[in-house]
Amino acid sequence: MTLLLSLAVNAKNSLLGQLRRQIFRPNVMLPMAGFAGVIALWWVIALFRQEMMPTPLEALVKNLDFIIHPFYRRGPGDLGLGWLLLASLRRVCIGFLLGAIVAIPVGVLIGLSHAAWLAINPIIQVFKPVSPLVWLPIALAIFNSAEPSAIFVIFITSLWSTIINTAEGVANVPKDYLEVAEVLEMPRWKQLLKVVIPASLPYIFTGLRISLGIAWLVIVAVEMLTGGIGIGFFVWDEWNRLNVSSVFLAVFVIGLTGLILDYALAKLQTVVTHRPARS
């Protein structure tokens, strides 16, 4: 009996010890320390600006309802954070997919053809530095409605990085690969499908990941301007009600969602290209 007991205690100790060792590993410890530092900084600032800024603890308490009930519906304009997030994600996904559908073929075209590059590259160079929000009034003038305009802005946002990276990938297909195809007497169209595009996939995915990242940045700003349902409008609305706590919650939600989006694309890249993706 005592033997069994001591065995159990040992097992418990070693399990705890294992857990402790896991937590104290540098690649767990240091990221946690980093976040702790940010929260400490927030706390210090909140102490100095008590009238507006909540401390992390106050913010957590005030946000508890949002965190526990992400999918409540308490009226037409009073939806849980999960619904708002889904609405924003929907806009980003539609705009981003439309953008990818246009950007990848355009990128392939200008990567292959110098003439196409001469025709299209100046357009990209001029439009790329323009803040995507500038397109919002133009989109509103065209569509006369907030929803398609928001999607249109995301569409425009998603174009540039994908086009540029796709073109670069297509133009930089290793000569060896093409020579193998040539020695095998592969026709041009087949070289494009079997060699050029697969070889460019890592570049295409880099472009898509940058585009999606920017799209997720931009949707928040767009929704602040257009209103309606979405995480961006939520931020603006809560600020207008002086609920800074909710804004802090939004910061974490937006950040984590962006992280998950990028992670999902990186996973997809690994599956599609059969090569590990660099993050």
Partner: peptide, 30 residues
């Protein structure tokens, strides 16, 4: 270029998105 003069390349020139089998299969299919 022609397949009756197939080359072995110094840098291998294997297509990295295809397995060993698929790399050889690509050539055989062609």
């Amino acid at each position: 270029p022609g397949a009756e003069r197939m080359m072995v390349f110094q840098g291998y020139a294997l297509l990295p998105w295809l397995t060993v089998r698929e790399n050889i299969r690509l050539a055989v299919d062609e």
